[in-house]
Design a protein around this nucleic acid. Structure first.
Lengths: 257, 257
DNA sequence: CCCCTTCTGCGTATGAGATACGCTCAAAAG
DNA sequence: CTTTTGAGCGTATCTCATACGCAGAAGGGG
């Protein structure tokens, strides 16, 4: 249980820094095994299927055995959030910030899409796990040659991160709703809203409905979702570009006169 | 149970469109009462405190009585997501899109801040409840005089919405972490990261840490959080402004020559 | 005016699920 | 070989959501 450093338990666990036990039976499980099993379960059957007993069953152990390696289910979820991530993209040092961030954001999107449950878990503040930090570093590195202040860089990266999470969350909520009850679902949006919305009281919404934006097909179309994703991302990066232009009209990291 | 129209139950409930029962005892509860009680509870003790029995106790009824008015806890949560919202701001018809959206976004932020649990619930796709739709309409109206296509408007509004949710989620996760364990928390970020991050492998992160961005004080400072919020919002709106400028160099909604 | 239908409130029961506690025994240290 | 430490895990609690079915109220129809 004790760790070599005086780090909080959870952090030590994330970094695998617990000292090896000297005595006693060999552990037949490790926190890593448990985390992997939990991720497999979540991938296969969704986050709701991840219960301590299910995970234990997956590993052929009893429920309580897990608690020797993981303090609580919450801690397990934290571990999952780090372990599910692959290596961040390796951006050449001279990549310009815009293509770097674009690549990065799409990388995050791809990573999360492989684990749809990922976006359902709340972002627990700035990252602490090794993989999360590696990704964070990657994005910060893309911004390193810009004139942003450090806290602004962090803000931008967190903004992008919440953007990706938000979009994924949205589309998976949609997909889940559809999977659960295709019939009710197809009536849910376009049709139902048309019934409920009075175009006189809500003209803008009326126009949207008339344009068919909420039709089931267009909501579920993968391509449209991707296009929307890129549209929003472009807006955000355009905004950043404009900001950088005003701050550094010509050179990089020049102080204002 | 039956509704006047052929709307799905949940929607009918949201809009209060269930026909009044003819026979039987008068209901001593309404779905609205239940929703209100649940919201009070969530406000006072957090979302985790909202259990069917707690809500029932709040109302002086038994647990199962609630199920006469609400199909499931999920449905109750959906109702809460609509009922917790106040009226959207009333934007004059000639408000320009930018101030309109700024006002709107801050309105959403303020609304959510009054109910910190709000951002913890997943956005269940496009809105269906009356209040949610009113807010949605409000944002769309702000964009009505722009040259955006309808689906782009929706994308922008959803983008703003997820942005707000994401920011709130983040800062409340932070606040919760701090409230739970101030000591461990203050060591969590700056100090811990400094220990764990090798500045040679992660130079960009190293600079951020050195700048003190992750110091506990600055993370929890309300002002900083607000400034960050506005910073991100400005970027996004700047991007949108740029996009609109390229699409309509001079006039509004003019087709390209 | 009485009875029948329809609904309400609610007691009871079921089945998860998380997790505290403490026992037993293995294995390494001495 | 004995002592110490920690692994695996059985058992027991508690909290929840929710299915089911009963009893009695309130109108409606005769």
């Amino acid at each position: 249980m004790a760790d070599q450093t005086d780090l909080p338990d959870e952090v030590a666990l994330l970094w695998g820094l617990r000292e090896a036990p000297r005595k006693g039976p060999k552990p037949s499980l490790t926190a890593g095994d448990i985390t992997r099993a939990a991720i497999e379960l979540a991938d296969a059957e969704g986050l709701a299927a991840v219960s301590m007993s299910r995970v234990a069953a997956q590993l052929g152990n009893s429920t309580m055995a897990l608690y020797r390696h993981v303090k609580s289910k919450d801690e397990l979820l934290t571990l999952m959030l780090d372990a599910a991530l692959e290596e961040p993209p390796d951006l050449p040092g001279d990549t310009d910030w815009r293509s770097g961030l674009t690549l990065w954001t799409h990388g995050v999107l791809a990573a999360i899409k492989q684990h749809p449950w990922y976006a359902q878990l709340p972002l627990g503040g700035p990252p602490v796990g090794p993989q999360n930090l590696a990704w964070f570093e990657c994005a910060l590195a893309a911004l390193s040659r810009t004139a942003l202040e450090e806290h602004e860089k962090v803000g931008v990266v967190m903004g992008l991160l919440t953007y990706v999470h938000g979009q994924v969350r949205l589309s998976s909520a949609l997909a889940a709703g559809y999977a659960k009850n295709p019939d009710a679902f197809s009536r849910q949006y376009a049709a139902v809203l048309t019934r409920v919305v009075d175009p006189r009281r809500m003209p803008a919404l009326g126009k949207v409905l008339a344009a068919g934006v909420f039709d089931v097909d267009s909501l579920l179309e993968e391509q449209d979702a991707d296009a929307d994703f890129d549209f929003g991302l472009t807006l955000y990066l355009d905004g950043l570009a404009g900001f950088l232009a005003t701050r550094t009209p010509s050179t990089v990291s020049a102080p204002s006169p």
